[in-house]
């Protein structure tokens, strides 16, 4: 008798004295790496959520975190590159920010080592919210560490999971269509995507040069000053990607079809191209299957406690 353990179960974690539960969606690890210096509490998370939507954190009170990181579309926007106060354009695409609690470094080039280090930077960034951080904190009646801790705590609770792919992995073979299953086979096999996009969040959290945008943006080189890191960017997780075009750090690829075509051709040639990026010569049917598989990574996004 064949018995499938269909894990649609939701792992739950009891946090803090308030006994509020953070529900980790199916497919993600129950273990959430949270620093000892900023434990998750329902109070901080709730405060962080309010701040995330608070436009007072920008110079002219026109922009909040949520302006660029829209919860309706997995905490990103639809633009090629970001637009901050006064429509000032930044150089890079707004990333989806789900499952960042599992992240090891932050921003496309990994220049922030923790979410605490990361969350105040958009406030000070002249192309984003353009406000002195101390002033931002005083506008919302907090000190800077409290602002930082609350925002970081809230970002940690933004989780994406519970997709058809997760149900498939848990043993429900019918959760993926035949074409999606073929796409998954290619994703792991011929197309070699799992060299970089693997695990519950479909990322190795490492930096790779795929040639996107070469040579305009030095990427990881800006952080390490190691020449061979030029043009390398952090592998993004792929959950909810199918519903959040455009793609890549510069938003240069408009559709998933374009992304798959880009990989099929072997990326964009340059001296530091990652050895895992190579000509794949995928057939039209194979490309369609890969796109179908990426669509199976759309699930549910939840935030707060």
């Amino acid at each position: 008798m064949r018995r499938l353990a269909v894990a649609v179960a939701l792992a739950t974690l009891i946090l803090g004295a308030a006994e509020k539960k953070l529900v980790v969606p199916a497919g993600l690890d129950a273990y959430l790496p949270v620093p000892d210096s900023n434990p998750l509490t329902a109070g901080k998370v709730e405060l962080g959520r309010k701040l995330f939507f608070d436009k007072r954190l920008s110079r002219d009170q026109s922009v909040s975190c949520a302006t660029c990181h829209d919860p309706a579309i997995a905490f990103t926007d639809r633009r090629k590159t970001a637009a901050g106060v006064n429509g000032r354009e930044g150089p890079r695409r707004v990333p989806r920010i789900a499952n960042r609690v599992y992240g090891k470094s932050f921003f496309w080039d990994g220049r922030a080592g923790s979410l605490e280090e990361q969350v105040l930077q958009p406030i000070a960034n002249p192309k984003e919210m353009d406000l002195d951080v101390a002033e931002a904190a005083s506008r919302v009646g907090l000190d800077v560490p409290a602002l930082e801790q609350a925002l970081a705590s809230y970002v940690r609770t933004i989780l994406a999971g519970d997709s058809p792919y997760d149900r498939y992995l848990a043993g429900d073979a019918g959760a993926l269509t035949a074409r999606q299953r073929e796409g998954l086979r290619l994703f792991r096999g011929k197309a070699g995507c799992t060299s970089c996009h693997l695990g519950p969040n479909l990322t190795d959290e490492a930096f790779h040069n795929t040639g996107v945008g070469w040579p305009a943006d030095p990427g990881r080189y800006q952080v390490t000053k190691v020449e061979t890191d030029r043009g390398a960017f952090k592998t993004p997780g792929l959950r909810e990607a199918a519903r959040t075009p455009p793609y890549m750090h510069d938003g240069s690829l408009a559709t998933l079809e374009d992304v798959v075509e880009f990989y099929s051709k072997g990326g964009q040639g340059n001296p530091y191209l990652d050895p895992e990026i190579r000509k794949l010569d995928l057939t039209a049917a194979e490309k369609a299957a890969l796109v179908a598989f990426l669509e199976a990574l759309n699930g549910k996004v939840r935030d707060g406690m």
């Binding site: 018995r3 353990a5 269909v6 894990a7 649609v8 179960a9 792992a11 993600l28 690890d29 129950a30 273990y31 992995l169 848990a170 792991r188 799992t194 693997l198 695990g199 519950p200 190795d204």
Partner: peptide, 25 residues
Amino acid sequence: RKDNISQIALVPARGGPMKVLRSLH
């Protein structure tokens, strides 16, 4: 797992879905 990760999980001895605690690449 097939995608080259290992997972630390608790599997109920009387049947039912497992709980994954930690994934390692």
